[in-house]
Design a protein around this nucleic acid. Sequence first.
DNA 1: ATGAAAGCGCTAACAT
DNA 2: ATGTTAGCGCTTTCAT
Lengths: 347, 347
Amino acid sequence: MKKRTLINDVASHLQVSIATVSLVLNGKAKQSRISDAVAQRVLAYVEEVGYRPNQLAKSLRTGKTHVIGLVVEDISNPFFATVAWLIEKHAFERGYRIIYCSTDNDPTKTKELIAMFQERHVDGFAIVPSEGIEKEVGAILREHTPTVLFDRHLPGLPTNYVVVDGAQGTYAATEHLLEQGYRRIAFVTTDSAQTQMEDRLRGYTQALQEQNLPAQVKRVAVTKETEKVIAAIHDFIRDEAECDAIIFATNYLTIYGLEAIAQLGLRIPTDLALISYDDHDLFRLYTPGITAIAQPVESIAQNVIDILLEELQNPVDPTVAPSQQVLLPTKLIVRKSSIRQPEQPTM
Amino acid sequence: MKKRTLINDVASHLQVSIATVSLVLNGKAKQSRISDAVAQRVLAYVEEVGYRPNQLAKSLRTGKTHVIGLVVEDISNPFFATVAWLIEKHAFERGYRIIYCSTDNDPTKTKELIAMFQERHVDGFAIVPSEGIEKEVGAILREHTPTVLFDRHLPGLPTNYVVVDGAQGTYAATEHLLEQGYRRIAFVTTDSAQTQMEDRLRGYTQALQEQNLPAQVKRVAVTKETEKVIAAIHDFIRDEAECDAIIFATNYLTIYGLEAIAQLGLRIPTDLALISYDDHDLFRLYTPGITAIAQPVESIAQNVIDILLEELQNPVDPTVAPSQQVLLPTKLIVRKSSIRQPEQPTM
DNA sequence: ATGAAAGCGCTAACAT
DNA sequence: ATGTTAGCGCTTTCAT
């Protein structure tokens, strides 16, 4: 009933050896000088009965699974969802499968996931590293498993990585606000020291410094409790911030910020201008539209998979080969939330 | 360098046979009457060197992978993302891993994914079935692979499934609108004949019928081209609909609808009241808040995994065992979009 | 109580 | 040109 066809069945039916079947199936017929006639018969019969080699056995034998482990921060965040989907698409076209998991930025969970992927014998890794996992990533590298970090990287480690020039992004956004006449620009970010967050902060402070304007930075602790994050932003805007514009360092901070601003009854951009680092469907849809620093998702995915597959297909001595590091530009998408309105009477 | 510890290394170091090590590791020490002393030494040494059995070899030998294939429509839709995450969490706690993929409602892709999961020898399936895959699902069942469908089901097949009572949901939503005084209520749904969509439509028509009010149903073709869907809804509202309220049959239809309504410059709920089947973060955040028929995601996930693990752990003769079918209630979350406003002068 | 050995299904070096 | 066969690392029966 559950009898799957085995390579043995194919071979014995065709009166050839299993080696012949295996070689034909793996495209090594020519180099093993198997006659075209036999090769054709094998292919035809395999097609006919729908024989599929057992991947488990194949992997055990070859040591290759053709699976890439994709470790992202949060697969339900549209940014990661999109990049993951694109990576999956490109990988699929080139014969690789993806298995993915979310770390929720939790180092312990990240370590478990990496261990789990190693147990599953993934051929390579694409990782959005949470903080404090240098040791685990280092261990992967030492095993020579091809690996690419993206979105952020681990400064101490000589790894491949693909990141976005966040500093340039926030610099441009700050300049845009300055051009619009905003002078008191605040920056709301997370309490994490991840490289990409520091980059984003740096672009902002630099742009202000060049104009001798003061920076106002709020670091919000990101927890699972949405309400607390919203409250923190709410209180910052109400009590601390003396500002006419805010740049949020991630799309979800912006979303929380929108909620806080709605609670405070402030109008965008009349009372407060807004720019989000990282775009989101919602920002297009929101009234007014929210200006965003968009990341090149397609390009990120393409670079990650290219580097990974190159290493997978041409294993080089990693003690010699330099790692590849890619820095991609952002694009400012200007919507109404950052455009200064003509003076309106306060009602 | 890449030398992983093998069961052989453990056995020879301890001067026992690999069988002993294997038995101890699989908790069969007692029943094989292995002395506690030996068992302890094995455990201690395994811990010390961090030996992890090769899952590939183990799976090849046992025929079990402890992996469940999760096939959803679109993992970036918050509904599916949440359910997938919950299923993953519960499965993990019980020793199972999840691999997931999105079908985009494409039957061809769905078939490929199912085939791929079978190649990976998943122990069980949780599937959100797209239309026209009765044959494939039938084949899975015939192989006795434990399977649960959810969100919708395939009417012809005697499978386990976990679905939501959409008819009750839209019925309650329609009643709510009627109570608010809306009389011309339209229903925007997709062009698909999937069971859950038909259920949702049924609740709406029934509620109207009971009041002898006419139904206005618009079936929109869902394509990847967002703009077209928005345009279709836009044109419906502008040209066809003679309505003062709309129920959208999915959360993404609502989002497209919001965009169309914004383009038309209509005010919610003054010009048009709105209810969405399936909730979304955005609906909480939007001004005004969008009333939604919320699905019990936690309960869906719990039921799916419970049924699946039960079958996985107590294999029963499927020709005898009846399949399990679960129907869960929805909950109407009333926000401003469906609350009638006091009469306002048209400016 | 413990060990030897037969596979799980496949690949690929080596024979013929 | 094609067949034989030794593993990949593990589980489990059977013999001791």
